[in-house]
Amino acid sequence: ARLPRSAVLKKILDSVKDLVKETNWDCNEEGMSMQALDTGRIVLVEVMLREAAFESYACEVPMTLGIDMEPFGKVLRCAGGDEKVTIKASRNDQDHIELVFENEEKERMSAFELKLMDIDGEHMAVPDAEWGAEISMPSSEFKKIVMDLAEIGSDLTIAVSKLGVTFTAQGNNCKGSMVLQPSTAVDKKSEQVAISFTEPLEMTFAAPYMKMITKAAALSSTVTLSLDEACPICVRYEMEDNAGHIKYYLAPKED
């Protein structure tokens, strides 16, 4: 599997490493994907890197690669963001993978081996949901709102009504809320805020977890929040050019 830029892998690693220390990557002809729960079983993260994300991709037999994020991160730090990355996994020797970084300008090539782990893979089935509300907005804006409000309090409430979407945090000494309304005057789709809902709803989530979930803003200019009463929120980042997505499910806080 060859990626035109290592930056994509670096960003994916950054987006999951606070939640997941080790995970199985499933490789098949469609691409590479992973699903993992954090240790508290509060967040589920799913990553899909489709064949379209790669400059070249071949997977003759489906394989599962058990990756330890820490050494993987050390290896990836050796790659320049614009260097090409080739990942090689051999079906005859499933003990390790090879990673080759190529800098075409400098005619430099570096090669690494990463030992694979035998990870007991847990897999969760996510039922298809009919969401009560969906919000799409610029990912940078969502990140700023979450980062700012997480400083105010550890509970982040998201309320959707005809007023728009309201994000509220309450701490011991202060309380703050931010309201976004659907944007009509913005031309660029990536800068628009769109809100749809059937009934008004209000749900509360742990702000520190939501902060971790905003790391993926680096992968996509937009984010979609899907909510339904008393269900986990789904926060979805679609990468450009059908390259894939990263999705997080975060369990709500309840009475």
Binding site: L37, G40, R41, I42, V43, L44, E122, H123, M124, A125, V126, P127, D155, T204, A206, C231, P232, Y249, A251, P252, K253, E254, D255
Partner: peptide
Amino acid sequence: MLVQGVLAEFFYYT
């Protein structure tokens, strides 16, 4: 007082 839910309450293991 709100308590943190876990995903197993909503999803199931396969």
